[in-house]
Design a protein around this nucleic acid. Sequence first.
DNA 1: ACCGTTGCACTACTAACAGTACAG
DNA 2: CTGTACTGTTAGTAGTGCAACGGT
Length: 614
Amino acid sequence: MGGIGGSLYLSMLNGTEAQTLGKSVDISSHLHRGGKDLAEFKMGIQDARFYYPDSVQGGQDPLTLPYHSEQTMGGYGAQPGRFYAQTLSGCPYGGVRSPTRSGTGQGYVPVTGDGFPAGGKEAVYPPSAENYSAGFQHGYQRPLYPLPGLQVCGKTQVLLNNYPLWAKFHKFQTEMIITKQGRRMFPFLSFNISVLDPSAHYNVYVDVVLADQHHWRYQGGKWVQCGKAEGNMPGNRTYMHPDSPNSGAHWMRQEVSFSKLKLTNNKGSNNNVAQMIVLQSLHKYQPRLHIVEVKEDGSEDPFLSAKAQTFVFSETQFIAVTAYQNADITQLKIDHNPFAKGFRDNYDALYAPPDSDRLTPSPTEGQQLLPGTCYPQGYLSEQYISPLPQSRFYGREPIGMGQQHKDPSSSPGPHSRWYLPPQQSVPPNRLDFTSSFEGDFSGNGFYKPFPLQTSTHHALSYYPEHPFASSGVSVSASGSAGWTTSRPTPQYPGKPAHNLSWFRAISSSSSSSSSSTPPGNPRLHAPSLLESLQPPLLQEKPKDSAGLAAEDPWLEPPSVKSADSADSGLFEGNKKRRVSPYTSSTENSPPPRAGEVCEKDNSSDPDYYGYYTH
DNA sequence: ACCGTTGCACTACTAACAGTACAG
DNA sequence: CTGTACTGTTAGTAGTGCAACGGT
């Protein structure tokens, strides 16, 4: 499987220009990189020959073609190279884009000739990324693209602003609640767009399409595919940004936020239909961002529409649910969504500073810790600042609520500076995302994994082996009392820093380094790119990271977690920890019913993992 | 052995609720 | 201060499937 795809990559990179399905792809110009970096990038791409995007049906849209017939899908699995080619052709400008999980948006998992996902007849998602054999990407290995969360289509670059947050959720298979009255997404979609024609006019909208053709259920602490998705469900699937249409300058000026987008399962919903996207519960969806050039009056020009650009970030995939299934997701939501502040544990009351000093933002200060605001270093590890050269994100407010900025979720607010510890004023658009991410995902202990948490109970820190868990935090090893009856106790088989294969490419040999790309990794050299992008202001290194970790006031009090994970910790205090109605514990989950349509749980199927490691 | 009824268990869903925060 | 918006939790309900039971 690797050979065909690999040769395609190589042939594409024969020179800076490659012919792909008749499209001329000028890699260097699209990447806006110097020759040296480009050469290194090529090496990375060559090494990326084992990374395959998922099946792509070029030119077909799940909205109009809800499900790929097996005949249609069959065969692609055997020729992965075609995927990428079609992915490229799907970009109207023939630009280099990150070959996303779903290519032009059809995020269906690869299929073999029999129409089932390659490597097995189902995919089984463990509750924790630690159970993945390779990478946390669900059925998808992110290609070695210079910057995570950044995609390029033609000349247009789109950055998923809150990529780290999405990545965290994605590790556990993001779930989104859908209700009749509509529920906002969290995390919500927020992008930074650049390299548009400032004078041209664009519509910017998001649609949500099925990511695969399966019905999903949470069983035994895992998401398992279960039968076929129901197709042809009526209802709105697109959400036009309220600022549309608008000039390219407008879209590039500030963040483009879709915080008001709501998800519903109410097909007959008439009110707020423009704000609601109708989904089906227990189906997996993939949001897509579309940028369509339009006439000045906002009307669509067929010629311009043909050049619509689509951006798909696989990390934003989610399963629509009516109630949370995975307690880890619930906890992440509680810990990160200011609107759920009331469900955080009494740590806030016990340990948090006065409200004006608190680390956790109130809704006013940004429902999601949007970049563009002065966040402490810890924040930046989650909401890394755009690597784009323009210093566009300093002091900006997001586009998302029109121009009103009334919504707490989109406006960082004037008090965001509060998040900055006095001794750690970090320039807002610092670009050391590498180190930040390492701190986030490799668990090397130099960066506080969840610096935002004022809550005692961070979902991930409960698990002593979890790479997110910050070192030095005392955690009860038993981890049984209190939790085991109601929430899963994932097994973390001692595989640190392994979840992000594409991160590993960045940080493979830097298990202890927090701030720089490992010298032994010639593939990405993200810092060199970043350094070239960094304004001089940002070159100033923060203090020694180890020292920071040692005296980082953002570190959670070690005793807190210890107490929390103790038997009485969960229920002590005035607020009892509550969990989702559906237990995800394996031992508590009923066995599949006889004759149930669900396919067997073959999470241990080597072919399954084999697929992910291809 | 086959068929129909009944009851139980489970899943998926909904409405109400408490807590938080902001706007007027 | 009140109303509104938002969150996850909780209790309750509807629907479904299976097993047990009884009648034919």
